[in-house]
């Protein structure tokens, strides 16, 4: 019977998608409201969240092949990528440094808890990389994963609107910005907008993920100094 939970995820998401797609507001995001719906449901009822997780493993399991399939839009955008490879690398590297330094600095204004800062550090990269970085540094991996999802939702909801306001109209620039700031959740959104956005977003997802893993030790060193 727990497989009713699998069906409910599918139905709630599809229903919300149908209802919210015609609405232009960035908050009208089916992913956001599906998550809110189930969190409220399990907080207020005696339904078992463990059963829900068990039944929905299929979706989590499908995430990995979906990420592998991102190779396709990436390959289809190859010509454009090759022409602008240096620009892509510079933009992603600067983006990664901005992401890590601004995230930690702003959080530091509110709390000096080192484990918190280490968990916020990799917030803009895909959760497996983020959890690996945080675990290595002695942060809280599950907190890091939770923050990563929150950041992804933020980017997916508001990213395209903010970029339009800021006159970032180049589809490649839009894709890179979404992938660099909001990893796979932002990339899923970017792929809905267009193949060029999707391709460049998956490129940014990979490149910034790798650069973050390489640069994180520097930032971890500084975070540890604050506690000394």
């Amino acid at each position: 019977m727990i497989y009713l939970y699998t069906l409910s995820t599918l139905l709630v998401f599809l229903l919300l998608k149908k209802m919210l797609t015609p609405i232009a507001n960035p908050l009208a995001n089916p992913l956001l409201w599906s998550i809110v719906f189930f969190i409220i449901l399990f907080s207020l009822s005696r339904l078992s969240f463990t059963d829900y997780q068990q039944a929905n493993k299929i979706f989590v399991w499908l995430l990995e092949p979906a990420i592998v399939a991102l190779a396709l839009p990436l390959f289809q955008q190859l010509q454009q990528i090759r022409q602008h490879l240096i620009a892509v690398l510079i933009s992603c590297s600067v983006g990664v440094v901005v992401a890590m330094s601004s995230g930690v600095l702003v959080a530091y204004c509110f709390s000096h808890n080192q484990q918190l800062l280490l968990s916020i550090l990799p917030k803009s990269v895909t959760s497996p990389i983020a959890m690996a970085i945080t675990a290595q540094a002695g942060g809280i991996p599950s907190l890091a994963a939770a923050i990563v999802i929150g950041v992804g939702l933020l980017g997916a909801c508001f990213g395209t609107t903010i970029l339009r306001w800021a006159n970032v109209n180049n589809p490649q620039a839009q894709g890179l910005a979404m992938g660099c700031s909001a990893h796979a959740i932002g990339t899923a959104k970017a792929a809905e907008i267009g193949p060029e956005q999707g391709g460049f977003s998956s490129l940014a997802l990979i490149v910034s993920g790798i650069i973050t893993a390489l640069l994180a030790p520097v930032f971890i060193y500084f975070i540890e100094l604050t506690g000394a």
Binding site: T9, L10, L31, V60, A156
Partner: peptide
């Protein structure tokens, strides 16, 4: 892909 992120 977006659907797969719901349970996460």
């Amino acid at each position: 892909m977006t659907l797969f992120f719901v349970p996460v």
